[in-house]
Design a protein around this nucleic acid. Structure first.
Length: 445
RNA sequence: GCCCCCAUCGUCUAGUGGCCCAGGAUGCCAGGUUCUCAGCCUGGAGACAGGGGUUCAAAUCCCCUUGGGGGUACCA
């Protein structure tokens, strides 16, 4: 810490950490690390109705998962009530605030706005001016003794020595109120940097109806934290060239507010998926496998009889084919199930065709005679069979694929058979021959 | 309503007066590789919101309109 930079991320625990908040946290963190400053975390739990401990925990977990470590805190505003009260009373004593009772009989303290013009020199928007006569006297201390957002924010930012306030631009219109408070107290006004918001895929404000919006949801769907961080960093910031993949270290080195956008960005899941897939591809299988294991177990897959080696091979085989762990699970479920689900369209197209039953019987016989059940021997065996039968290889591959995986899409057929093992492979071929290949018509007529 | 912010391909963006009849990525389309799909490779379509200025010259500067977003709470 050799600079005067001190920033904070100050979420309110009224819900999970959503990606907009995560991006704000990331920018603050990057700014602090780049400037060798301090990054602190403050929980703004001044809304007694809506704040929950679960939400606080989820926010902390999300920050950790993303790798956004903080140097101070977390501070909780709910534990600093006396400080706010004292500050509010000071303003009353100085004639800058006053007690006010509303129609419901609630007694609060309001700050008295002065008419005038307030100018803020925002680090990313430039100069913004406000006519403060348009701002009404606002409540700073609520009837329940809790401070309001604008008040607690100023008391804390000033008290904690925050040098730069980096937050979403939905706070721009709060800024003149806060500046009025800084001035009333005689506090030094920090620098402000209002970063654009992240919008949903339809361009409207991000909300639950946009599907996954919280960091924990992405974690639970099997995304890699670095991929999410990389993706988020590029939403509203760019290193200035065409670089898409940036390591955390590089982000820290290159991050400046000067390169942050003013324009709000729409969250695009498709591109996130692509990016996650790229990160998966570029992560060694040995590093991926433990996480895959955890993910599969959490998803209810019984791995007690599965060896580490086998799982490693499974990941290897699908390494370039899956974008998220959830994706991998969807693709490989048939390996684990006893009774697999068959895609009806695939069965109709590749199994319920004349001659396929006989074909698979030949496959069964040939495969059952293979010495070692490996991809090389299986390939030799089946290539030989196609020659003997005089058919193209795809005539064989697809029916086998559907028979053993239940789907018309999978990884390489030899590798899949090898991984599945002789017993299960033969069992499924046999099942298909007996139950899936004969058309219902031929049975009836 | 009033106040504030924003405006380059569908999306994320590069671009800070000439290097731009606008570059990259994603997505999409076509072809190649191939046992399917994915991946990978090659190619293609695709944008400066509109109108006024300023200037020899504007995606870049100014104004207006339009559109989007935010605020206007004893929410944060």
């Amino acid at each position: 810490m050799n600079s005067n930079v001190k920033v904070r991320f100050a979420p309110s625990p009224t819900g999970y950490l959503h990606i907009g908040g995560a991006r704000t946290a990331l920018f603050n963190w990057l700014f602090a690390r780049h400037n060798k400053g301090v990054f602190l975390l403050r929980i703004e739990d001044t809304d007694q109705q809506r704040s929950t401990e679960d939400a606080t925990q989820a926010i902390l977990d999300s920050m950790k998962w993303l790798g956004l470590d903080w140097d101070e805190g977390p501070y909780f505003q709910s534990q600093r009530l006396p400080t706010y009260k004292q500050h509010a009373e000071r303003l009353v004593a100085e004639g800058k605030a006053f007690y006010d009772t509303d129609a419901e009989g609630r007694k609060a303290i309001r700050f008295q706005m002065q008419d005038g013009v307030t100018e803020i020199n925002d680090l990313i928007h430039g100069i913004i001016t406000f006519d403060t006569s348009l701002i009404e006297d606002f409540v700073i201390l609520k009837a329940d003794g809790f401070p309001t957002y604008n008040f607690a924010c100023v008391v804390d930012d000033a008290g904690m020595g925050i040098s730069h306030v980096i937050r979403g631009d939905d706070h721009i219109s709060n800024t003149p109120k806060q500046i009025a408070l800084y001035k009333a107290f005689g506090f030094a006004v920090p620098e402000f940097a209002h970063i654009p918001m992240i919008l949903g895929e339809d361009g409207s404000r991000l909300s639950k109806r946009h599907g996954a919006t919280s960091v924990t949801e992405y974690r639970d769907k099997g995304y890699l934290p670095h991929a999410l961080v990389n993706f988020l960093a590029l939403l509203g910031w760019s290193p200035g060239n065409d670089q898409e993949f940036i390591s955390i270290q590089e982000m820290i080195e290159k991050f400046t507010l000067k390169r942050a956008n003013k324009t709000s960005a729409q969250f695009n899941n498709t591109k996130l998926d692509w990016m996650n897939g790229q990160y998966v591809k570029n992560t060694p299988v040995e590093r991926l496998t433990p996480d895959v294991k955890k993910f599969f177990e959490k998803s209810g897959i019984d791995l007690t009889k599965i060896s580490e080696e086998w799982l490693f091979d499974l990941v290897s085989l699908h390494h370039e084919r899956f974008k998220t762990f959830q994706d991998l699970l969807n693709q490989t479920r048939f390996f684990f199930a006893d009774a697999i689900e068959y895609d009806q369209g695939a069965v109709d197209k590749f199994l319920r065709k004349e001659g396929v039953g006989e074909l698979l019987k030949e496959v069964y016989t040939a495969v059952s005679l293979v010495n070692t059940f490996g991809k090389k021997t299986l390939e030799d065996c089946l290539r030989t069979l196609t020659e003997k039968l005089g058919v193209g290889f795809s005539k064989l591959a697809q029916p086998i694929r559907v028979a053993i995986t239940g789907k018309s899409v999978s990884a390489g057929i030899f590798e899949t058979m090898e991984l599945m093992g002789r017993e299960k492979t033969l069992k499924r071929l046999d099942y298909a021959v007996k139950n899936l290949c004969e058309t219902s018509e031929s049975v009836k007529f």
